[in-house]
Amino acid sequence: MGEIGNQYWKLRSKDGRDKIFKTPEDLSEAINDYFQWCLLNPILESQVVKGRFVEEDEKDGEVIKIVKNFEIVEVPKMRPFTIEGMCNYLDISVEGFKLYEKRNDFIGVTTRARQIIYNQKFEGAASNQLNPNIIARDLGLIDKKDLTTDGDKITMTDEERDARIKELIKKAKK
């Protein structure tokens, strides 16, 4: 174990690690590589296709026919662009990306990346290539409406609530 109150940290020549992307152009190129990777690597979903499928196989030198009523196929589905996926691809943390967003020389690149990600998700959901409910929540597009209190705080006591319920039940029976 080292000495109490050691000064080993002073041996380090600098603080923090080197920036992975030294220029906005380097970051832009890497982000575009991520987008291209997503397009070339769709998510594959197994789907059952019903129908009559005939396969030929060879057994003991004889060709035999196998008839099936279905087949399982891999269907490519749109892979959504995400900040988290992009950061994983770039080998940086989301917090690291946020630091690039704060740098004036990188603002154009990071803003463009966020716009492309938002737009791809929106268009994917609008065309049902991505789950509209999940994407709407992710993009903050859910229209929330409080139908019971119209946004007011509920201030009834338990006794007042029970009395109101009884009142409404009586009214409904009439």
Rank of each mutant, 00 (worst) to 15 (best):
K98M: 11
R112C: 08
K153I: 00
D162A: 04
K166A: 00
K50V: 01
E56G: 12
F106N: 15
K68T: 10
M78W: 07
E62N: 12
T111I: 05
G61S: 08
E160G: 01
I117E: 00
D138T: 00
T155D: 02
I142H: 13
T110P: 07
I117S: 02
T110G: 05
K144Y: 12
D152K: 14
Y89Q: 10
Q47D: 01
P80H: 04
S127D: 13
E74Q: 15
I83V: 09
P80A: 03
K68D: 12
Y118K: 10
N41G: 04
N104E: 15
L90H: 05
T111S: 11
N41P: 05
D138E: 02
E95P: 02
P132I: 11
R112Y: 14
R161Q: 03
E160H: 01
E167I: 01
R103G: 15
I154H: 06
A126C: 13
M78L: 10
G61R: 13
V109R: 13
V75C: 08
Y89A: 06
E55A: 11
F122I: 00
F122H: 06
N69H: 15
K144I: 14
K50D: 06
E95F: 08
D143P: 03
Y89H: 14
P76N: 14
R137E: 13
E62G: 09
E84K: 12
G96L: 07
L39C: 04
D152T: 05
Q36H: 11
R164Y: 01
E45V: 03
K50I: 02
L90N: 07
E45A: 06
I72E: 13
Q36A: 09
L44P: 02
R79L: 04
Q129L: 13
T148F: 11
S127N: 15
G61N: 11
E101P: 05
T82H: 01
